[in-house]
Design a protein around this nucleic acid. Structure first.
Lengths: 165, 165
DNA sequence: GGTGAAATACCAGAGCA
DNA sequence: TGCTCTGGTATTTCACC
């Protein structure tokens, strides 16, 4: 269950470049190729590594305009929330979807070819859903994605939230 | 510059699984291995494919609590914005960062081991920056990331935004 | 952690539109 | 001319020691 220093070293390398050879991976982490191969296989089987994916450049694939769209759903019951989630997640414009607390229930991250495509998405696609009670669009000027998840600091352990006096 | 049907087929496959063998990739897209190898190499060189990365399961690596933190920066000038962006992007808790329009300037996507870690991040880390004028935290119940960016529909072309009468 | 057989990737050159 | 397909060689992978 626990991840040791070698696991974290392998995860760091694979987050940066998932396609480097096992030989390079072993050299960078200071173990033999058979060891790194075995560890990565285990990390994959345990589900620590969820998958290996190619990242696309949104500009290069013709979708340079990004926005975040807050959506309020009424009623916010499980079937309605889950129905909307499944529908929104598979839209071609959607590249990410957050289910959130707060005044809105969803935050959609979309990428489209141009501003017209964004406007059309909001007033054509989203409004066809009866459960959508409110929509609020924010433009994304830049999106930075961290690909270097590291070991959480153990210092941040849970402290009691109730105190006796 | 343009991507043809084969390019999109390769991109679709590699977004789903970046580590499948070139043989499999060729078989799935209906071309010979040398063709798929060459095409992928070109897509990589042109920057259409930005990289190959391992995706981690945030729960499995001990960071099950996610939040979105809206941050307002004062003054919102270039040096201040860029300074904060660089600082925030490299924090271990940050897994994504949006620079946005609207009342807030940034939206930070963070993942932490527990709720205390989140609270500590907000009141210890963020407040150490003088330019942070306002912070608003929203919990993330679920985050779905689409790994299937497809060819943008050409129907969504730019229409004029000004009209003559 | 090391070794060897099998599979795979990559490079060259030829064929086809 | 540009793109794709076929063989040879180096590399990588993986089961076993």
């Amino acid at each position: 269950m626990e991840l040791d220093a070698l696991d974290w070293a392998l995860l760091r390398e694979l987050q940066h470049d998932a396609r480097q050879t096992n030989r390079d991976l072993a050299a960078k982490t200071g173990v033999s190729p058979s060891t790194s191969l075995e560890r990565v296989k285990i990390l994959r089987e345990r589900g620590v590594i969820d998958g290996f994916h190619a990242a696309l450049d949104l500009e290069a694939v013709g979708r340079p305009v990004q926005a975040l769209i807050s959506v309020r759903i009424r009623p916010p019951s499980r079937p309605v929330i889950e129905g909307f989630r499944e529908w929104a997640a598979q839209l071609p414009q959607t590249i990410g979807l957050f289910v959130t607390s707060g005044p809105h229930d969803f935050l959609l991250h979309v990428a489209v070819p141009n501003v017209d495509g964004l406007y059309a998405f909001v007033i054509d696609r989203l409004t066809e859903r009866r459960e959508v009670a409110d929509v609020q669009t924010t433009m994304v000027y830049e999106h930075v994605q961290s690909r270097s998840i590291t070991r959480p600091a153990d210092e941040t352990r849970r402290r009691p939230v109730t105190r006796r006096t």
